[in-house]
């Protein structure tokens, strides 16, 4: 079977300028002096993972271990410095919800805007508009500017839009930590529903409990290196004993 996502020997370098040079004068001065130095920082070092169709793939690791960077290279936001990322299917990113919202617009307008950001067509959004509203349970507030919403309410809409489609791959970065308990449960159910429909899920979570509950395969990252990849129980046990 062909993997859904295949990450091969990916390394990601960031140039941490010791002082951020973003104006021309400084740049020219430093350039002529030949002192335009950057501190290199490798957020990912030679990472390879393969995600098969139908997998619920967990990524665990401490803050700064490279989980989010890896997700961003898979989502196409970052281009890896070395190595390749191949994705065979449509991706619905759930990385930090609400990225495509404009707080001055109403919820109704934002639903369309956010759908457009994710690359959906107008027809698709028309068809799914009602589902999205139903799922987010915000019928009464549709024509209220988003800035008057609570963050939990924004998160609801965002989740509803991203999962309105049946994507081939769902990328979820700490998303289930928003909203009240009941809504979290609802989100988890929706994700389970998608999974049983064959959607591949990539999940980042600090809650090892959640990873245990949902994933079938896990990769443990530390400082940009893969420490361990394998079945959930095995990796989680090793991870828990270390921390």
């Amino acid at each position: 079977m062909e993997p859904m996502v295949s990450v091969k020997n990916v390394s990601m370098r960031f140039n941490l300028a010791s002082e951020k040079v973003d104006n021309l004068k400084e740049y020219l001065i430093k350039f002529t002096k030949g002192s335009l130095k950057f501190e290199e920082f490798w957020a990912l070092k030679d990472v390879s993972i393969e995600i098969m169709p139908g997998d619920v793939y967990g990524l665990v690791g401490l803050n700064g271990s490279g989980k989010s960077t890896l997700l961003k290279t898979i989502a196409g936001v970052l281009k890896p410095t070395k190595g390749t990322v191949t994705v065979n299917g449509s991706i619905a990113p759930l990385i930090e919800l609400g990225a495509g919202f404009d707080m001055d617009l109403t919820a109704r307008e934002n639903i369309y805007l956010n759908g457009a950001v994710l690359g959906f067509s107008k027809k698709f959004m028309d068809e799914h508009f009602q589902d999205i509203v139903d799922f987010s349970e915000l019928h009464d507030f549709l024509d209220v500017p988003l800035k008057n919403y609570s963050s939990g309410m924004v998160a609801r809409i965002a989740f509803a839009i991203a999962t309105a489609t049946k994507p081939d791959i769902l990328i979820a970065d700490e998303i289930l930590s928003v909203g009240d308990y009941r809504f979290q449960e609802k989100c988890e159910n929706r994700m389970k529903e998608l999974m049983s429909g064959g959607t591949t899920v990539i999940l980042v979570s600090h809650s090892i409990e959640q990873v245990r509950r949902m994933c079938n395969k896990v990769t443990w990252l530390e400082k940009g290196n893969v420490i361990m990849t394998g079945p959930t129980e095995e990796v989680c046990r090793a991870y828990s004993t270390k921390y």
Binding site: L105, E109, L113, G115, A116, V117, S121
Partner: peptide
Amino acid sequence: RYRFLLSNLIGRDIKVKYR
């Protein structure tokens, strides 16, 4: 594929400008 985004962003600009 992203033409709907283009039209949506234009719509947003019009709405926000004359709000």
